[in-house]
């Protein structure tokens, strides 16, 4: 019983992390119609930058949360720069844009290997969250509960941003019909930069938040990117609710699969994706067919 409870909490925690990662991926896909194949790299770079701020190799050390926020901001700037300097040159050529993100993801992976070495770096749990929560016979790590809380806060904030602000309305318009949005005077190309930066920042933040759970290692990017792909194929592109539900589903399948069928965990993970592709190609909550 305790085993199942713990597994459930772990699944929801992982789902929350995946949501932070895939919300941006889904928005970028919805708006720009390209899968951002650097999204896993953004996750990894966020985590590496965060650990650097924690380790004190720069001559100062930051608090965990400050490190996470600053790493996220830096990754957001990197993402926005990449959109401005590279993807913008290839506006309208989606295939070329995808290939460029793929190329950049290899460059980033190699630069990280050069900069931070090949050994995994573990990230200490932030102060005050190292404890445990008791619920009857089960004991839950406090940090994992906190991650769920953070994911929920971000989900609500993103939802409010998209539904209640002017910027959100412009993004929604761009997702629904970029040409019409341009006609009514929305600067869609500027939205591209904003959303790309926002998505990258969220991914970088998720990387640091996930650090105490996953640690940071070369190849983390290639581990996370397919998960974001599956979430978005499951939930549908450009849909926040879709990313949320998709993330929770993938979180559960990933954790339960690893516990019950360790050899086939990766295979089981992709089964729901296959089912969705066959039965409902637009994803559970997506408007447009993939």
């Amino acid at each position: 019983m305790t085993f199942w409870l713990l597994l459930t909490v772990n699944s929801i925690t992982f789902g929350g992390l995946l949501f932070l990662l895939s919300a941006g991926f889904s928005l970028i896909f919805g708006l720009m119609r390209i899968p951002n194949l650097t999204h896993g790299s953004m996750f990894m770079v966020g985590a590496y930058l965060g650990t650097t701020f924690l380790s004190g190799t720069l001559g100062f050390t930051l608090d965990f949360w400050a490190a996470a926020v600053i790493a996220a901001l830096e990754v957001a700037i990197l993402g926005a720069l990449m959109e401005r300097l590279l993807l913008r040159r290839l506006a309208g050529q989606q295939l070329a844009q995808v290939l460029v993100t793929l190329g950049v993801s290899f460059m980033v992976a190699d630069l990280c290997l050069m900069g931070w070495g090949g050994d995994p770096i573990s990230v200490a749990t932030p102060a005050g969250l190292g404890g445990f929560v008791r619920a009857g016979p089960a004991v839950f790590p406090l940090y994992r509960i906190a991650v769920i809380g953070i994911a929920v806060v971000f989900a609500v904030a993103l939802w409010l941003m998209l539904e209640r602000t002017r910027l959100g309305a412009m993004i929604r318009a761009g997702v629904d019909d970029p040409q019409m949005a341009r006609v009514v005077g929305i600067r869609v190309s500027q939205l591209f930069t904003i959303v790309f930066g926002l998505g990258a920042g969220l991914a970088g933040f998720a990387g640091m938040i996930g650090g105490p759970i996953l640690s940071v290692y070369p190849g983390l990017d290639q581990d996370m990117l397919p998960l974001a792909l599956v979430v978005v194929i499951l939930g549908g592109t450009g849909s926040l609710l879709g990313s949320f539900v998709g993330s929770i589903i993938v979180g559960f399948i990933y954790n339960f699969g690893q516990a019950l069928l360790p050899e086939l965990a990766y295979f089981v993970l992709f089964l729901p994706m296959v089912l969705v592709l066959v039965l409902r190609p637009q994803g559970l909550f997506g408007g447009q067919v993939l």
Binding site: P35, L37, L95, V98, P226, L229, V230, V232, I233, P262, E263, L264, A265, Y266, F267, L269, F270, M273, L277, L290
Partner: peptide, 19 residues
Amino acid sequence: IMITLALGEIIWGLAYRWI
């Protein structure tokens, strides 16, 4: 592209994990 990427990762995952 996305679907073939995901399918390729499945085969990789099988090769890596199905010890």
